[in-house]
Design a protein around this nucleic acid. Structure first.
Lengths: 198, 198
DNA sequence: AACGTAGTACTACACTTGGAGTGGTGTCAA
DNA sequence: TTGACACCACTCCAAGTGTAGTACTACGTT
């Protein structure tokens, strides 16, 4: 088993690319070798089997999908109102556009997880942590809305991402910028946070 | 090319099952034969190639996912308020639970469509029609809310379905019935339809 | 009632592909 | 000098496809 971390990362990034381009069906050691432009047989030396590869791809994808701290910090200098939430959602959407491969790979992994308990456990951790982080972030930052708000935003954005990744033409009639603004507007009541109803 | 429609349908249903259980990776003519419990080579006689099979599977899935008219009609006897929308969303979710295979197959098809223009066109039609139907149904039935409401509901429910299909444990802490009610509550303002703001 | 025919079901086989894994050699750096 | 790794080549194995050939069934014909 080889150790070279740079090469391992390169292979994992190649695997993500393959996964996004050719799907789970096309993900073979040989395809990863080719995509990473390394000699045939290399992937065999770095991963014991397909499961191992998928597991490590999951971890790598998680790294790649974590937003850059600095960028978020910059955005968070603005006042805590609905416009800021809109901006955050647009940035999330932008991240998807920029790293389409990672998001597509994640979708492939979700489906693969359907039939691989270990992978499902790993992915559940990733998404649960992601959701919890989202909720905590939202509340700590004192953004308008409560836990349920974040949950519904999470779901709607999920749906939007899936559609944009797989059948973009369906929502093409609705310009993204506006759609996201509308989405937040509907989910987040106009005035007075509903998180404190009493 | 064989014509027997009953057998063709059986093969397509088998293909959906295979797709849901083993994914696109496991979808081979032989696997379909095995799942349908027909002699090996049969699928070869009914579909010219994989693309052909996928195309016909798409059509079949569409059939299977169309809600039963009568069921909807029964539900629609109720007064047009938010509770009714909640009920409709719960029924949508229930349909997913009942025909999990079809929904999973659809997800697989979405990903497959990423790299097959013909399939993408077909799926775009399916989902566009679905969305348009949803909007028209909602407005014609004079349910509370406007087009944007339906759109956001569609997105949020999409997200919920994807999560429930692939990593159900993530949203397990939030009981479905309640989650769906909350979701509608947030997206659909409590009183006075926002579709007519002026 | 016997025959013929068309369409299918079924079986088996031959062919091809593609990927996995591994051993061996070369290379670089500590 | 030694150990880790890159690179290359080769073999083995498994899977799937498509099709030829045979058997069956139903139906129409005379």
């Amino acid at each position: 088993m080889r150790q070279n971390p740079a090469r391992r990362r390169a292979l994992l990034d190649a695997a993500i690319e393959v996964l996004a381009r050719d799907g789970s069906r096309g993900l073979t050691f040989r395809a990863v070798d080719a995509e990473a432009a390394v000699p045939g047989g290399t992937a065999s030396n770095y991963f014991t089997n397909r499961d191992d590869l998928l597991g490590q791809v999951t971890a790598r994808t998680r790294e790649r999908l974590t937003p850059v701290e600095a960028e978020v910090a910059a955005t968070m200098r603005a006042p805590r109102n609905r416009d800021l939430v809109v901006r955050l959602m647009r940035e999330l959407h932008g991240r998807m556009l920029r790293d389409r491969s990672s998001y597509l790979a994640m979708l492939e992994l979700r489906l693969e997880a359907t039939r691989r308990p270990e992978l499902q456990a790993a992915l559940t951790d990733v998404f649960s942590a992601n959701l919890q982080d989202g909720i905590r972030f939202h509340l700590d930052a004192e953004l308008p809305g409560d836990q349920t708000t974040v949950l519904v935003l999470y779901l709607a954005m999920s749906g939007l991402l899936v559609d944009d990744l797989t059948v973009p033409a369906v929502l093409a009639p609705f310009p993204r910028e506006e759609l996201i603004a509308d989405l937040v507007e509907r989910i987040l009541p106009p005035e007075a946070s509903p998180g404190l109803p009493s």
